[in-house]
Design a protein around this nucleic acid. Structure first.
Lengths: 205, 205, 205, 205
DNA sequence: GTATAAACGAGACGGTACGTCAGGTCTTTCT
DNA sequence: AGAAAGACCTGACGTACCGTCTCGTTTATAC
């Protein structure tokens, strides 16, 4: 997703210095930063390439040179930020590990980053490329990490061995995303606890 | 959501009939039908008011007279269709009632109507009015119905009395909406079963 | 110009009174008045039928029932006003008669009525029907009156007999209309005098 | 009138060349040409920006980038054409110079260009900017040229020294514009002669 | 009186053009 | 060669009026 012209040989790998102005790494970073700002301020729909270019003090062309469309920039911008990266702890209790992670996740979702995540999921409904980027760049990494935690629980005998981890993860995190997307009820730490308390007993041995 | 001029006193409440040509009900219906068609054909992003007007053989003004924006029309179009209305049965077993309902719901979500629902949820992220319409016009009705089913289960002694129905519903339907919105894994009847089998044991006495 | 339905038999000529509500003369008058107001306020281009209807508290249909288009209403409105009707005096000197008339005409042109006249002439460039109405309803009456004055001058021996009255009138009033329409220089009483002093010697015996 | 962004420093005055794609002169020319074509075909009222854009194969935005409204484009289109530029000759007789010029002017006014001129004068009644453009871009140049001719006549002793050239010009050309604008009588070469014959004797020594 | 018919207000309706915004491409100039 | 500035075509936006068309109400004859 990072570049539409991925075929090009990156400057670092190619010792033969090519003529011409070098790709300005600061410019890239600036674009991504401003994109994230604007995304959190106004959401995906209000976001425009022209707006990003203006805010970053950059020509539209420069953006189009490196990303295919709005979704591309936004995805890169989101992935380049770190606010949403929440490591799992190993407290000894899987239930506790997941509860703590979900509490922190809920906290992130209530921050501007949450708006960005919702915007990306929503944007995925009108742009399959964006959807795929979100899944491969964000979701799958988090899910495989969480899956490890569940498998650890199975090994330790906390979780029943016949539990399907994919489904189990959905029943834990799905409700959180559901409230994020529809806003039909508040998304609080207490809610994270409640979901864990409702679901985990059914997974335990 | 039915009219941007909600300030007007509806005819039923106000015996003083307003003068002027009456709103042509056929036109309205036609607009909503064509909207649904186009929505299912090309998705929410591709949908344009001009497109709807052209397809329905109607002036753009007529659409803007009654709905504030694209989201409004789409919402009304969706609510006026019946394909997504799935009644709960009473088989005697709450678990079975919900499983059957979820299977049918999954089937609907895989039809064009599912695309519309996803579009509406996504649209709600950029338009709070739309979000609220979706919640009050679609979600809350379905949730209160489902809540009745759960409460019935508690009465019958199938479900633990200390279960929070709101949270329980989220753990059942949240995963389904999660897959609908992110598409990270297929949404099948088997998945509906799996979710029920994962969650229900934790709710049972 | 008064009615689009000129085929109808006017009430006066037809003793058989038709049933039905009679044309409300107050409504008509009100429409014409408000039209004139709006014309003087914003000019012909800004004038809209909807605007007239709103200002007069009248349905659009009522206007379209009696006039074919904007030009029709405006023309009738203008002709029904009297501010622009300036009689010629008979002072004994044709030169003086015309000078006095032109001074008063200039004064009218500097009033809101002048704006209306300019608007009508301008409007005639986009609507030949309006142009023709203006000529037959306004111009020709004034010109034939002025022609009488010139002919009187010829009889009395003040004006050369070989003067073409049409051309002579153009050289007297044309300059005034010219300044009205282009505004390239102010339109004052002194200017009226100057034109008369410039042209009349060439017409005198 | 040439550009709505008159604040910009024109390239000629500013040696620092600005970056960015240069204004495509062919596009401009094409727009103006097609505008003139359409103006002459259907008149000012029928002329639409969309029509011009379509005919010129140009985006509407490109037109709005450089001109504030219809009147602006038309004015530029008119001024960029040369059909209406009629030089004065020096035959030795001022009367003859003016008569010949007026005859040619009348001929132009009977061509499509005349329709454009009338449209511009009419348009000036609803747009003071257009009116001013017309005066400064078209009228004043012609009038100062004509004034020179009259002054030459005074020097030579053909014209009385006490004649006010401004008023004299109005009495000569005003009648022509009058007929152009109202169409109350045909505008022929003979008419040009008649006006000259009526007015000039009063100006001669 | 009671039917009949037209005038009238209100306003819905299918349209056309408006002037604006953003998208994505292309060109020019500077670094 | 990379980057900025910005001109360009495209297409949809939401608005203003157009001129036509129902509606129900009101007002005047005519039976």
């Amino acid at each position: 997703m990072s570049s539409r012209r991925s075929a090009r040989i990156p400057a670092k790998e190619c010792e033969l210095k090519t003529p011409g102005r070098k790709r300005c790494i600061l410019t890239q970073r600036c674009i991504l930063e401003k994109t994230l700002e604007l995304l959190e301020e106004n959401g995906y729909a209000e976001l425009t390439i022209e707006g990003i270019a203006a805010r970053a003090g950059v020509g539209k062309t420069t953006i189009y040179r490196w990303w295919p469309n709005k979704a591309g920039v936004v995805m890169d911008a989101f992935l380049s930020s770190t606010s949403h990266k929440i490591p799992f702890l190993d407290t000894g209790s899987v239930r506790e590990d997941i509860r703590l992670h979900m509490r922190r996740f809920v906290k992130v979702l209530n921050s501007p980053a949450g708006r960005a995540i919702a915007a990306l999921i929503a944007g995925g409904r009108m742009d399959e490329v964006l959807a795929e980027s979100f899944r491969s760049g964000f979701l799958s990494a988090r899910r495989s990490e969480a899956k490890q935690v569940l498998l650890r629980g199975i090994e330790r005998g906390e979780i029943r061995a016949d539990v399907n981890p994919e489904v189990a993860l959905d029943t834990l995190y799905g409700p959180v995303y559901f409230r994020l997307m529809t806003g039909h009820a508040p998304l609080t730490s207490g809610y994270a606890d409640a979901v864990v308390e409702t679901v985990m007993p059914g997974l335990a041995v």
